[in-house]
Structure formats: C-alpha cells, structure tokens
Nucleic acid binder design. Structure first.
Lengths: 232, 232
DNA sequence: CGCTGTCTTGAGTCGGATCAAGATTAGTGG
DNA sequence: CCACTAATCTTGATCCGACTCAAGACAGCG
C-alpha cells in the first residue's frame, strides 16, 4: 500500500482506484512475468501472494522476494526485459495496467511517482536483509527471520489475524528456494521450530506462537521495514 | 555515473559539478556511514572504492555491495537512520552534500532525481543477482560472478585497463564476507581460479585472463547491468 | 628490524546436501 | 462419497562442500 509512504489526497486515491479498476482473478501457479520475455504492462497485486524468482540453467531456483497485496510487480524493470519471473503463490486478484498508461498517469500524479520510488527503497532494504540472512545465518535463523519479516509486512496491511496467524501460501520447496537450503533440511528445521513451540504451520497458514523468542532467535528487528511517510 | 541513465543537459552537468565541488580525501578503512547512526549528508564517491555492509552481534559481516566512482552513498536512506554501514576500501575522494541542499537541488533538477531513481533500480538488479549468487551457486561460481560483475561495472566508467586488469582493493576477508564463505575457503578457491588460468590477483589488482571462460563458469551475463537511458 | 595484517596450508569436523522410499494430503473425476 | 493420482511432506542413511582450528610464511610499513 502506497499510503505507507505518503499521505495521499482524495483525488490521488480515486485516480489510483480507477487505474486499478479492471482486475482479474488468476490461479495459483500462474506466471505473470517471464524472465527474459517482454512486458508492456505493470501488474498490481490486489489480493493474494506472489513470488519473484530467477532460474538457473541447471534448474535451481532462487526466490528473490514475496509480493503481498498492494505491491506492484514491475515498475522495476529498467528495460522492458524483466530479469526475473513473477508467479502467483495463491489464487490472486491482479490489475493489469499498460505501461504507457502508467507512465502518463505518473506524469499527472508526480507525488505517486515519488511514493513508488519510496516503495523501491523498501524493496532494497528487504533485499539487503535477505542477503545478510542467506550469507551469514544458519538454517534456523534464516527461516525464523523470514517468518518475522512476513508477519511484520502483512500486519501493516491488516492481514494478520488477532491470534497472530497469517497466510503463508508456500510449500517447503519454496522455503528452500528462498533461503538457499535444501527441501529436506527445511523440513527438519521446521520441525525444530515446531518442537520448540515457536511456530505452527498448517495448511499454508502460519502462526507465530512466541514472537518474542522467534525474533530473538532470528536476530530480527523491524526497523528496516519502517518507512516514514515524508514530504507530508 | 548518472549519464548512464539519462542524457543530461549542459546546465545539469554544471549544476552537479558545483554541487560536488567540495571533495575531501579519506584513507582506506574510513567509515563514512555508521549503521544505526544518523546522517544528514549524502556522499558522492568521486574516486576510489567503498563497500556497504551490515554487522551481526556475533561479529559476522555481510558485504552488501561495492561502490565505485560516480556512485552515491545514501539517497537510499528512507529515514535518516542508515540500516547499514559504508566504509572505504581504498583511499578515496568524497563529496559530502548536506541532505537539505540535495533535496532542494533535486527539486530544481527533477530529471536528475529521475536519473537517481534509475540508479536505485540498478542497485536492485545487482542485489537480486547477488542473492542468486549466494543462494544457489558454489564457491567457484560465486567468486567468478563477482569478478565478472566488477569488471563490467568498472569498464562502464573507464576504469579497466586495455590489458583487462582493474583495481579490486579487497582482501580475502572481504571476499569471504561478500560471498558468504570463509576466508580459508576463499583462499583455496582463488588458487583454483588461478591455477585454471582464469584470473590473476596481485597487489589488489585483478586481471581476468580468460573472460569468456570465466563468464561461462560463473553463469554470468551482463544483461542486468545494462541500463537503457530513456525519457531521452 | 620488528610489528601487524594478510595469505597459505594441513587436519579434522560439521551443517547441510543428496539419494531413496514411504506416508500424508489435496485434487480430480466418476 | 469414494477411488485414484499427483503433490507434498517425512524419515533414514550416506556423503561432501565448506567451516574451524592452528600454525607457519610473507609482505608492507613505521
């Protein structure tokens, strides 16, 4: 949600709304963007969850990040040749906006363009944190950190239940590919977290049983996710 | 260099020049920005090399990226509390610009602001590539990829000699901390690359002896570093 | 000349990978 | 509502890439 980054005026909100008015429902697994292909559209994830990833010739996949409702898929692309793919993790509602239209729109609403660049900065902050995660932490810490991060991001858009549970529509294979671990090891690590009473993960739904202890274990602090809206 | 992202007008170049007119020389090891501290300045690296990194309580360090001449240190910071540190790898020339002044400047030169946001997109592309690197590749590939990337970035600013060598002012400890490997393993991996006749690394200077073969080994393609200047 | 930081090398260990198979669960169509 | 199939999850056994520890060799520098 862009409002995290800047208080928007009513007309801006309305304009955004009409820009994203044509939404379409897609099934889990649908690939929105193909690495190396071309796009002339910007996709806005209205409802559901998606992942960005890169594939290696050998078939290895690295998940680069998760998209949650309100996230935009690819203002990112410098050229129109995306350097990674985006696929849906769950059934999702998508608004598909022609790039041309988006460009014009942003010229009329420079404040929104500015908010988007803030969103990019948040992406950077998250990417750096992931790098630290994969580069320096062990399996347990990596998973814990990821869970803490997701919970924090989702809570900002009101997607965490009062009991602390939230949708996490990923299988163990996806967890493996975003932490740089093997599926088997993810499985065993999850069991440890479960046995330690830290989390519960069932039917694509994650409950953090002891947020305090999990955050400590992960070395998680939500500072990097806190974006101050500025320029009023 | 911002001109990678957009053809700038003479007055813009002149304005940038005067903005960055007061430069100062610092020694290798100098810490420009402290994680968790505060900054009211934007730093422009005019000459030399620097690294961004995060530290963990246990002393582990993850290097998040390298800065080369023309790179800007921290338009990045969403709040004024940097989430990582920046230190010089070599003696370097730095322009220190007050954030206020920078903000005003960008209001007068919106095209430059726009170029900066492009630069951020390049940062994102590099970060994603690093994530792939650390997450999925083995030691040899990681190092090779890093070297290919540095050479490509440096060649864009004319910092690669005609014999293919360039400054790489990092010790093995830094290589370890940016690839997520141990120093010892870096040492052995470097030896392999040397013995295979792929590289030569002496006195902080790297020569890629067989670019072709190294790129293949690394799975490197420079696509993600190619930024098309647009909006004329 | 003698630090101090950096690089090398060897030996032993371990976290996490791989391989292989069985158990569960979720979907599908009848 | 059940049978069938394909994912996904578990578990055990084995292996290996990379880590740690430890010590010696250089190199740059005041």
């Amino acid at each position: 949600m862009l409002q995290q980054f800047m208080r928007l005026e009513n007309d801006e909100i309305a304009a955004l709304g009409s820009l994203a008015s044509h939404t379409k429902l897609h099934d889990a697994g649908h690939i929105l963007i193909h690495e190396g292909g071309t796009t002339d559209y910007v996709y806005l994830l209205v409802e559901g969850t998606a992942s960005r990833y890169k594939l290696l010739p050998g078939g290895e996949r690295q998940i680069l990040g998760f998209l949650i409702p309100g996230d935009i898929c690819d203002v990112q692309f410098i050229t129109h040749r995306p350097d990674h793919s985006v696929a849906l993790l769950s059934r999702a509602k998508i608004a598909k906006i022609p790039s041309r239209k988006m460009t014009e729109f942003l010229i009329h609403y420079p404040r929104i363009e500015w908010a988007l660049s803030r969103a990019a900065l948040l992406d950077i902050a998250i990417l750096r944190q992931w790098l630290l995660n994969i580069g320096q932490r062990d399996a347990c810490e990596r998973l814990s950190h990821l869970f803490c991060e997701m919970k924090c991001r989702l809570s900002k858009i009101g997607k965490v239940e009062s009991d602390g549970s939230f949708d996490m529509p990923v299988n163990q294979s996806a967890l493996a590919d975003c932490t740089g671990l093997s599926i088997v090891h993810i499985n065993r690590t999850l069991q440890r977290l479960r046995n330690d009473g830290l989390i519960e993960l069932r039917r694509r739904r994650l409950t953090i049983l002891d947020p305090e202890r999990l955050a400590t274990l992960a070395g998680f602090s939500d500072d990097y996710l806190q974006v101050k809206p500025c320029r009023s």
